[in-house]
Simulated scan of single mutants.
Amino acid sequence: VRLGEGSAVHLQHLQAPRAARTRSPATAAAPVQAAPLRDQQRDAARRAAHTAEGNLSLAARQLGISRTTLYKLLRE
Rank of each mutant, 00 (worst) to 15 (best):
27 T>N: 02
59 A>H: 01
69 T>G: 13
70 L>E: 03
43 D>R: 13
38 R>G: 03
7 S>Q: 11
62 Q>S: 07
75 R>C: 10
15 Q>C: 06
76 E>L: 14
44 A>C: 04
64 G>D: 04
56 L>Y: 05
28 A>C: 02
58 L>K: 00
76 E>T: 06
74 L>N: 08
28 A>F: 07
74 L>A: 01
36 P>K: 06
8 A>F: 09
53 E>Q: 14
49 A>P: 04
72 K>S: 15
5 E>G: 12
58 L>R: 08
68 T>V: 14
63 L>S: 02
29 A>N: 07
3 L>I: 04
4 G>L: 03
56 L>K: 01
73 L>N: 10
8 A>R: 13
68 T>E: 14
43 D>K: 04
71 Y>G: 08
43 D>E: 14
19 A>M: 03
25 P>A: 00
8 A>L: 14
35 A>T: 06
71 Y>V: 09
61 R>F: 05
51 T>G: 00
34 A>N: 10
2 R>P: 01
72 K>C: 12
32 V>L: 14
75 R>Y: 13
35 A>V: 11
65 I>F: 06
44 A>Q: 12
5 E>L: 10
23 R>L: 15
40 Q>C: 12
28 A>Q: 12
49 A>R: 11
37 L>I: 12
30 A>Y: 09
4 G>T: 04
17 P>M: 07
64 G>S: 05
68 T>W: 05
71 Y>F: 11
60 A>G: 07
